[in-house]
Design a protein around this nucleic acid. Sequence first.
DNA 1: GTTGAGCGTT
Length: 249
Amino acid sequence: MDATKTVYVGSIPFDQTEEQVMEIAKSIGPVVDMKLLFDPLTGKSKGYAFVKYTDHETAASAVRNLNNFALGNRMLKCSFSSDNSISSEFGVENGVAGSSGSYEASDSNSLPALPPGMQLFANQTPPQAVSGALSTLDQASAYQLIAEAKQMAKTNPQLTRTLLEQCPQLAHALVETCLLLNMVTPDIIQMCLNKKMTDIDQLSVDHVELLKQVNSLTEAETNSLPEDKRKVVIQIRDEIKKGSYGTIY
DNA sequence: GTTGAGCGTT
């Protein structure tokens, strides 16, 4: 057992099965090992479990998110497992995001260690925390953030995908930053999420007009555009052809 | 109702 990756979960209602506890544990991240303890004589749950995660940061996330989690008529208790057999080299982490360590990737095809998560305030939702963090960002930094994200997406789309999958709050932050900078509008975001729009009414009149204009550009007009803009026009036309925007005419 | 088995003894 590894005390840096393993959490103690206590105050589990006695009627919870191992499967049910596993589901809750997995809501935090991949689980390597889980043991709900039972009294060998009575067969009843002892109301506590040990959950081993793949890494320390996921375990830390469990401590933050599972402690005081309401389950049945009880509040779960979650902390790093105390392990008397191994002297703990890590103090218990009370922690807010990381100051220590470098996050440089060893090579361009693997992600560096990502910074740890942060403690949410009471009643604060993750999106609120992201918005709060972004509110401290000045406009120039915001533009730089988007530019760097775009650069990364172009030079290494696979790694970018991995990063955003592992760190959905970053994806959220990037989208929100684009909105703050007026690079996109909410209905465009909506469209990307839906991929297919069956209801054209959800597009603003301006957008419909714009799509019509793009779609009706002549070959000569299209060819006179700079390379990058021409690509976008062609892409939009393809989308219209595929019906991604519904029927605009 | 709050930190991991059991055997069997360094």
